[in-house]
Design a binder for these strands. Structure first.
Lengths: 367, 367
DNA sequence: GTAGGGAACGTTAACGGTTCAGAAGACCAT
DNA sequence: ATGGTCTTCTGAACCGTTAACGTTCCCTAC
């Protein structure tokens, strides 16, 4: 320990009068040398303070780093507070733990286009989650000659992808509301670009959103409601850059202040929806009698609150991504294996926060 | 991309008819070569599909991996659900992000003594959090010739440590209860060893607990209460292996069933305390009138619930550890810098869950 | 005319391992 | 004596880069 970095495999071999190969074998292939010699090697190593083969040198030679990189350009503080992101992280970590590889959180500050962190990461593959389509870090990852799995991102040629069918999932939710009779709706969504732009969202901005998931959901919602005669250009959509309960509440406030006629608030995440519920309570709006509120994700808190939402197993998402990346049966034969696209199940949870609108109720069930 | 791993710095150099150094400089020291040549190098690289210098080879040469390892032998599923652990992770990640280095979650399955993951990790240092004193992974980390910072672990010679003064902190809490008049207390604590052993804890087991934090708190509590004449051997202590609200509730139930005379429940974590509150409610015990409950950590949920607890900034804990590990002003000159021990502030939050016991109240304020 | 100095690029020597094809010797059967 | 098979260990070739100096060349100043 004193002698910083003195003992090396070669010096140990010299000390013992054996070859480097033998020392290496003592650590990696005990069956390749006699037990006595092996014991002698290990003993001398201890005496000399040799800590065992250097991991980096080994990685260089074996071309295995024993870790995968996770790209997450969301502000870390929020990522660690967002149950959905945590679920993905947990699932991924579990899959990696099973395979004995580490998970490296890449250093990638949200606003920055400094991708050195991606270039410097000694990893065997990447998982990319929740980044805008045009993120420079994502581009840098795709440049690297290692397998990559993207989660909740647009399908890319030759790149594995894991995620739910967002369009189908939210369409189911939309029809749930349509059948209840809602036509005056409002939407609360998460950030649509890397720049903060809180407030009402133009149609063009919806179409050009850089976050795949948000864009997909908005477009699918528009399609569903236009089918039943709603003019989407009149539907208020409010965006929030941050993703907290408070932001959900303030977005709901902004939307309802300007559009009191709205009977249903569709939120693209449970967090936003739970925030909206809080705002509804503050306004003394009864849910679902006066206002229907829906979420997306199916986090524990949503279930607890009885929120109507679309549930997806975020843990499964992370786990699938990890297993896909680490699956040894792939990447074996030459040539890139055809990219795999895994579509995860979603389920509509009909909770206590959705009901027919007051007018529709009267229309349908009234005298 | 097709030609898996063909282009290398050397082949590029050959193709261009320049030296390897020049190619290397094109990437790492643009000022060391003419802009034209640099452009030509980068252009040819693009054409040949050379993805830039290999991170592992670079790490070997520069002796910098650009990442630190985080050892967390807690079951990952629980670590990612525990607000305290998440706070540490967040603080650490932020500090590392600022420094442009990654955080690698080491593969270390809780029960296992397979420390290969620790040996194989190419990292510049380690942070160890929440592991038992005798964890084989911790031992393996200490073997590695890289700087290490331990959090909430017993002080080790020559090893940096970050953490609160647990003994002092909980002693303050103890005297708060003592001054309120509590003498019949019970304790709920987290796991004391790697083996699951839910239930009442013997005195010996308290003394021999392998989790530093738990042991320290128990011992400090014992000292404080013995000072005022309480015979600690009569104080019921209930242990739970898992760390959830439900476990807190069941521990409280177990303790109160056997010891109905208890007037105060001291919990070594907020999660356990919040669970205990739920159990108190189920029993129709009024808190704090019938039962005082205290926690430890000061997580958001505790503040929200008005819990009497000791608050510590877990985020600061992670951040300090990261900064300590990455501080470039240390490790410069030869010789190991004397180990640093950073003691973080704690604060007693007197919430709405602590009050004088019924009997004492009568005794002190009654007629 | 030459000393001095910087810009631009090259040479050499690690960095610390793993791997594969043997070599040397021992043991055994023919 | 021959050949075959094990076991045990070695030699040399990589893995892909960067650090520390050198070298060359051109330009300027005195």
């Amino acid at each position: 320990m004193r002698t910083r970095r003195q003992a090396t495999l070669a010096s140990l071999a010299a000390e013992l009068g054996v070859s480097r190969t033998t020392v290496s074998n003592a650590y990696n292939r005990p069956d390749q040398l006699s037990p006595e010699l092996r014991h002698r090697v290990l003993e001398t190593a201890r005496k000399l303070g040799y800590p065992g083969p250097d991991p980096v040198a080994r990685s260089l030679r074996t071309r295995k780093a024993g870790a995968i990189g996770l790209l997450l350009t969301e502000n870390l503080s929020y990522a660690f507070r967002d149950p959905a992101a945590l679920g993905v992280l947990e699932g991924l970590a579990l899959a990696c733990e099973d395979a004995g590889v580490g998970v490296q959180l890449l250093p990638a500050r949200p606003g920055t286009s400094d991708v050195a962190g991606v270039h410097r990461a000694g990893v065997d593959g990447f998982v990319v989650y929740s980044v805008p389509d045009d993120d420079p870090h994502l581009l840098a990852v795709l440049q690297r000659p290692v397998p990559t799995v993207i989660i909740d991102q647009p399908v890319l040629p030759e790149i594995d992808r894991v995620g739910p069918d967002d369009a189908a999932a939210i369409t189911t939710l939309a029809y749930h509301l349509i059948e209840l009779g809602h036509r005056e709706i409002g939407v609360l969504c998460m950030r649509l670009s890397r720049e903060r732009r809180d407030g009402f969202v133009s149609l063009a901005r919806q179409r050009e959103a850089h976050y795949h998931v948000q864009r997909t959901r908005l477009i699918a919602l528009a399609e569903a409601f236009e089918t039943v005669g709603v003019d989407w250009s009149t539907v208020p959509v409010v965006e929030r850059f941050e993703h907290t309960l408070d932001d959900g509440a303030s977005a709901a406030r902004q939307l309802l202040d300007a559009n009191p006629q709205v009977t249903a608030l569709i939120c693209t995440s449970d967090i936003l929806a739970l925030g909206a519920l809080a705002e509804a309570q503050r306004r003394s709006l009864r849910v679902p009698a006066d206002l229907t509120v829906t979420g997306f994700d199916g986090i524990d808190a949503a279930e607890h609150a009885g929120l109507t939402t679309v549930s997806q197993s975020v843990r499964e998402k992370g786990r699938s991504a990890g297993e896909l990346l680490l699956d040894p049966t792939r990447r074996t034969n030459a040539g890139p294996p055809s990219a795999q696209v895994i579509t995860l199940e979603t389920e509509l949870w009909t909770g206590k926060t959705s009901a027919p609108p007051r007018t529709a109720e009267q229309h349908w069930f009234g005298p």
